[in-house]
Design a binder for these strands. Structure first.
Lengths: 344, 344
DNA sequence: TAGGCCCTGGACAACGTTGTCACCGCACGG
DNA sequence: CCGTGCGGTGACAACGTTGTCCAGGGCCTA
């Protein structure tokens, strides 16, 4: 009686366990375990009785207990920046597909570009004993993950490299992509080009800025301070930056925008502006083809897939040294990047 | 010795446990547990020794064991259709935010619109003993979840209702939204309006079709078979449907598209078509404002938030009867829906 | 100074599963 | 006819944590 009362108030509700199934089927506990796990050494008749009992009781194995015993969770965690950002959806989905192929489930979490929240999330996932972790860094110091990695949590960084530790990273070629995009504008006759990017402490943002400067320098062009704007991707800020660059004493005739969110705002701002202004954006955007927006596209799904494959190779025992993989970008010319300078 | 060897080959690598911490700090196991969980009854000095040991050993509590003991996992699962679809990103993010506020982590999985995969995923999550489940149904029979729900897994369906079981559901007003969108076209003078939607076994697709028919009937307009196209959202198929409707013996002068993916393809197809054709789409799309696409917008984030809040209310003990919540839609007039019929 | 109480700390069982090992009965070979 | 081997089965410990309960010591009060 007391026993029943205790079970009833237990939080799982009243889930049957293997013990219950065993009692019902009139067999031993271990035999149930064997049937559930498809292990050999059970007569067809016994197996049938066990399966009946499972069916009747609605038993489902408790993977928490299984994990505790086996040590592997068949679970990986993905810490990204913002699941609502259209760039991360395909990336996450690609990771999921690879995980699924390896029989693993996926935890998703957004850091909201906050280093503390990234750490909190990553460590919570480690406490859940994920087998592996894929992290899109928000912070620039990942030493907090060292004990975890030593303890066997496979870890791969994506989109941006890890800070202050040696770890796998899968990146897009931000520097080369931006350099190529800006060179494209220069090739179309532009000499005063503006750069509107994200906060420079974000690795990709800094790399793209570096690519912009490199392309300008390659062409022997100066870069005025008024042509570079870095900061949040807040539409208000970006719109202001666009307005100021177009109204500066040496106004720009073309813009390079540092990521998809900036590009969206810039496109809107330019639509309100009367004269045509050339634009190349980093990251592809849905419907950008119809709007004729030229972009430097990166393959988000490939980033996710590559990172996940590397993760599972490690989980399968590969002992390679940490490596940095860089994926190329593609310039998609659609019109906005091929507009000629309006004055000169 | 044998003990050490066994530990070493254990899959966690060599993670310290509370026992190890206790030994190191020279206290009892339970005292470590108390410190880790912030329970009272530990002198500051003892606590300090324990914390030092934790720091040195790099201990992190094993939540699998904790879960086994406590019965609650502080974990919820979200089964959606495709994380790469821009509609589901914000929804997922909204669920995550609510989960985070309740101290829970989120499993994400995509069913790829495959009922079997949906079931497989949902049951795998139940085996992991998620406290709750949010499901965007791919299938139309969810009786397989009955044992789980009886066993205490809180379950809320989103975007589409559950099939053959009584459960909470949070939906957008597909019927009303479509009816309003089509009425908008009619109000602008259209009498021959085409409908291009998703497979009709999907609840929302069927509802939107019903809304279309209702609006036409309200206005006393006939609906020709050639004006209705249902099937996959494959661009090939949708483009063909657009072409055929515009070339039919009674060609349509306006189109209503059933969801974001269809709309994207329709916009592309109409861009290739010479004459202007009116269009209203269900679901908002990024940059649709710049393209001037009139849409019936639903609030994906609100769907996710509402569902998650309901889930956690249940987890907090609310014993309300299953309920169906319907969220309204908003018609955003941007130009494409206000084009007058080209002939008549 | 004795008695009781509170505060701190630890021993032990339990959560539900899996790995190890030993047992039982039967067939087969010597 | 008995030993050997093997296939089928179950008892038991262990995974790492938390809840229960008890022990010991210091302090307060009568």
């Amino acid at each position: 009686m007391a026993d029943i009362a205790r079970r009833t108030e237990h939080r799982y509700g009243n889930r049957p366990t293997m013990k219950d199934v065993a009692a019902r089927a009139g067999v031993g506990l271990k035999t149930v375990s064997r049937v559930v796990n498809g292990e050999p050494g059970v007569t067809p008749d016994t197996e049938r009785r066990v399966r009946e009992a499972i069916e009747i009781l609605g038993f489902r194995r408790n993977d928490s207990a299984r994990v505790l015993r086996k040590g592997r969770t068949a679970t990986v965690g993905l810490v990204l920046e913002d699941l609502a950002d259209p760039f991360y959806g395909p990336l996450s989905r690609a990771v999921e597909e690879v995980a699924r192929a390896h029989g693993a489930l996926l935890f998703n979490g957004s850091s909201a570009e906050d280093p503390e929240r990234e750490q909190e999330l990553a460590l919570a996932l480690c406490a859940r004993r994920v087998d592996g972790l894929i992290v899109i860094p928000a912070g620039d110091d990942h030493r907090y993950l060292e004990p975890e990695m030593r303890a066997g949590v496979a870890t791969v960084f994506v989109d941006r490299p890890a800070g202050r530790i040696d770890a796998d990273a899968v990146l897009s070629d931000s520097f080369g992509g931006a350099r190529g995009g800006v060179a494209h504008l220069i090739a179309h006759g532009h000499r005063r080009i503006g750069f509107i990017g994200d906060r420079p402490r974000i690795h990709t943002a800094a790399e793209r800025l570096r690519g912009y400067r490199a392309a300008m320098e390659d062409a022997g062009l100066p870069v005025r301070d008024a042509w570079v704007s870095l900061g949040s991707t807040d539409p208000e800020r970006v719109s202001t930056a666009v307005r100021e660059m177009l109204a500066a004493s040496e106004p720009v005739t073309a813009l390079f925008s540092g990521n998809n969110r900036v590009t969206v705002t810039v496109v809107r701002a330019l639509a309100r502006h009367g004269q045509p202004v050339a634009l190349v954006g980093f990251d592809d955007i849905e419907l950008a083809d119809l709007l004729g927006v030229t972009v430097v596209a990166q393959d988000a799904a490939a980033l996710g897939r590559t990172a996940a494959e590397r993760l599972f190779r490690r989980l399968d025992g590969a002992e390679e040294a940490p490596e940095r993989l860089v994926l190329g970008t593609t310039l998609l010319a659609r019109g906005s990047g091929e507009i000629a300078p309006s004055d000169v």
